[in-house]
Simulated assay, not measured.
Amino acid sequence: MKNGMKKTAAVIMAAMLMGTGAVVPAAEDMGIFSQTAIVAEAASVGKVTGLKSKTLSNSEIQLSWSKVSGASGYTVYMRKNGKYNKLGDCKGTSYTVKKLPNATRENFKVRAYKIVKGKKVYGEYSSNWNTATNPQACKGLKVSSVGTDSVKLSWTKIGCTNYRIYQNIKGEWKEIGKTTGTSYTVKKLASATKYQFKIRACKQDDKKTSNNHYGKYSGVVTATTKKSDKITQSDIDAMKKELQEYSNSKANFIRENYTEFDGYGTEYNTAEELFEIMQHELTPDNASYNDIYCIDFDEKDIAISTKAFKEDLDYLYNRHRKSYFVIYVEICPNGIDIHRNPCWAIYLLH
């Protein structure tokens, strides 16, 4: 009767334990007292918690978890074809899964076990953990086309979620975009300017999380945007500055060698002095000029226009060496309708 009660108790405990997911050795392998002892031990095997991972490379993932009190070891499982298959056992609380395909998502579970009477008795499975391997390094990055304000990059396709594009900005690499394709056009660049780019592939754990795994960076490519055939305001400002400085250098020579009088016996050496003498009645806008020269912009090469102006300035200064004058330069002002295209007007101011 007692044995029957013990057997019944063992069966009940076994049924309860199986309801928790624990594994109980077959009854025919041992006596009823051994069964009872094993069932009692199995009931105390805790569930693995804290499962997490660290992606080591494009083929290795290291799993880790919290220690289960009293556990003899742990068994690691990976899902394949809808089922969790055993990968291996370990005594500690970490396990490295190797030889995985690059840029692939994998699902894992772990459960603890105790050795009782030479048999493994398992606790419950941990919760599922989803992670991924890194993509491989991107290859074949090249500059496929260059414009005045854009650079198109292209590369070889590899397994990943998307590709991240980086640009060297003032010595620091910054992510500027991403794409799922194998090309990307960087826009809003300055003309005639050198740029550096590189890329790397990204793999996400799953579509609902932001956990990213990156491959190694590609090599760096360099591209120089084409020179713009349009004259911008910055081009005009730079040209005006250069020409005015050139004009000033010429005027310095004349100022050092010649002196001008305003007609009242008052000597002056600069336009500013003259304006002060005239009590602000004379300015470059309302002064009289003895000559006006205009020249067209070369819309394909502003340097040609600059060179032509310098030659013209040389001629004008040489022609007027016997008297002091000031060069005043501006973009075709109102009232000067000599050229329809953008041009510069050079005023010889006395």
Score class of each variant (00 low, 15 high):
residue 3 N to T: 13
residue 6 K to V: 07
residue 7 K to P: 00
residue 8 T to G: 06
residue 9 A to P: 01
residue 9 A to M: 11
residue 10 A to W: 13
residue 12 I to V: 15
residue 17 L to M: 10
residue 18 M to V: 11
residue 21 G to M: 03
residue 22 A to P: 02
residue 23 V to N: 08
residue 24 V to G: 05
residue 25 P to N: 00
residue 27 A to S: 11
residue 33 F to V: 15
residue 35 Q to N: 06
residue 38 I to H: 01
residue 44 S to P: 00
residue 45 V to S: 03
residue 45 V to H: 03
residue 49 T to P: 05
residue 54 K to R: 11
residue 60 E to K: 13
residue 61 I to A: 00
residue 62 Q to N: 13
residue 72 S to A: 11
residue 73 G to F: 06
residue 73 G to M: 00
residue 77 Y to D: 02
residue 78 M to V: 13
residue 78 M to K: 11
residue 79 R to T: 05
residue 81 N to F: 04
residue 84 Y to L: 01
residue 87 L to D: 02
residue 87 L to Q: 07
residue 88 G to C: 05
residue 95 Y to E: 01
residue 95 Y to K: 05
residue 96 T to V: 14
residue 97 V to S: 04
residue 99 K to G: 10
residue 102 N to S: 04
residue 103 A to P: 09
residue 103 A to I: 05
residue 112 A to K: 11
residue 116 V to R: 14
residue 118 G to P: 14
residue 119 K to C: 07
residue 120 K to M: 08
residue 121 V to I: 09
residue 125 Y to M: 08
residue 126 S to Y: 06
residue 130 N to E: 15
residue 131 T to C: 09
residue 134 N to C: 10
residue 136 Q to R: 15
residue 142 K to H: 09
residue 143 V to D: 02
residue 146 V to P: 08
residue 147 G to I: 12
residue 148 T to L: 07
residue 148 T to N: 09
residue 149 D to N: 10
residue 149 D to Q: 09
residue 156 T to H: 04
residue 161 T to L: 02
residue 165 I to P: 02
residue 169 I to E: 06
residue 170 K to P: 01
residue 173 W to C: 04
residue 174 K to N: 13
residue 176 I to W: 00
residue 179 T to E: 05
residue 181 G to D: 09
residue 184 Y to R: 03
residue 185 T to P: 02
residue 187 K to Y: 08
residue 189 L to V: 14
residue 189 L to Q: 08
residue 190 A to R: 10
residue 191 S to Y: 15
residue 194 K to N: 11
residue 195 Y to V: 03
residue 195 Y to R: 01
residue 199 I to T: 04
residue 203 K to M: 14
residue 206 D to E: 09
residue 206 D to T: 12
residue 207 K to G: 07
residue 209 T to S: 07
residue 211 N to L: 03
residue 214 Y to P: 15
residue 219 G to Y: 11
residue 220 V to C: 01
residue 222 T to D: 11
residue 225 T to P: 14
residue 225 T to H: 01
residue 232 T to M: 03
residue 235 D to A: 04
residue 236 I to P: 01
residue 245 E to L: 12
residue 246 Y to K: 06
residue 247 S to I: 15
residue 251 A to M: 09
residue 252 N to Q: 08
residue 258 Y to F: 14
residue 259 T to R: 10
residue 263 G to A: 01
residue 264 Y to G: 12
residue 268 Y to E: 12
residue 268 Y to L: 00
residue 271 A to W: 15
residue 272 E to G: 00
residue 277 I to F: 06
residue 280 H to Y: 13
residue 283 T to R: 07
residue 289 Y to S: 10
residue 289 Y to C: 08
residue 291 D to R: 06
residue 292 I to D: 08
residue 297 F to Q: 02
residue 300 K to A: 04
residue 304 I to F: 10
residue 304 I to E: 10
residue 305 S to E: 02
residue 307 K to C: 02
residue 310 K to Q: 14
residue 313 L to I: 15
residue 316 L to N: 13
residue 319 R to G: 00
residue 321 R to M: 13
residue 326 V to I: 05
residue 329 V to E: 08
residue 332 C to M: 05
residue 334 N to C: 03
residue 339 H to Y: 14
residue 342 P to E: 01
residue 347 Y to L: 03
residue 347 Y to V: 07
